[in-house]
Nucleic acid binder design. Sequence first.
DNA 1: TATTGTTATACTCTATAACTATA
DNA 2: TATAGTTATAGAGTATAACAATA
Lengths: 149, 149
Amino acid sequence: MSPGRVEPKAALAAEVWRLLLGYFLANKDRHAAMAADLDLTLAEMRALLSLEPETGQPMGSLAERWRCDASNVTWVVDRLEDRGFVERRAVPGDRRVKKVAMTPLGEKTRNELLERVHQPPEELLALTRTELSALRQGLGKLVPPASTG
Amino acid sequence: MSPGRVEPKAALAAEVWRLLLGYFLANKDRHAAMAADLDLTLAEMRALLSLEPETGQPMGSLAERWRCDASNVTWVVDRLEDRGFVERRAVPGDRRVKKVAMTPLGEKTRNELLERVHQPPEELLALTRTELSALRQGLGKLVPPASTG
DNA sequence: TATTGTTATACTCTATAACTATA
DNA sequence: TATAGTTATAGAGTATAACAATA
């Protein structure tokens, strides 16, 4: 409350934000490299990671989840199907709907991808346990609970 | 060293990494919105933010900085020039080289953009001073010093 | 002959509008 | 008539290869 003695909180927050931005930028290439490593495009990678392997989801729900147009879902699923990662399945109750389900190859690729994506980079492992705990504490309040997948 | 009692460091790091990933994803839309707000595409925004307003840089160095093909730099600079944000300038010593310099309008737009980009989001301002300091401490070790621009 | 930047071209990803087939 | 998904088409952003001007 009494500025001058201590650093203003807004300035502190701004600095943290700039650090986060810098780290975002630095990691864009890393993700592209991970995708390329498995011979995937970034769109394929994103799609593969956000598909539920078990049940299969109707195309429409994917458009909502990926926040894109339905025609774009058709396009992406076409690519994924061409690569043998997913297949379209009819739904008994409503013959208009198609569910997108993962093939064994798709699931295998998804798991390899998850392993790489979740592997923390070197510089993170180089932090101390105390620093990591503090980051977890702070970041945990920033990130909406459901946005991990 | 002695696992079992305390949480393994790798697991801690993995969790922090997942939190960061989640936050990356959540902020993609925010940046797109900021760009759209100033009637810019994401590519224009990125370019505008990473140009030095003062001196002007040769096209070739931009390709290196943006890690893209030279022909793509030509394309992006064409757009920027169409919008009146930058101009190509001849370089006295070598008539092959063109420097990309910012116009007053470009500089003005860049400053507005910087103001928005550097404004920390609500959820960050909601953290305590202690949490922010801890984040700064940890993130400061993660981010390579030169990657802020 | 090597280098800087441009042009021609093609491919990826995205959206809008018109369409097909169900419901 | 309304809904789920597709097709036709267009535009942004990216890359490769061939090219022009200059060094």
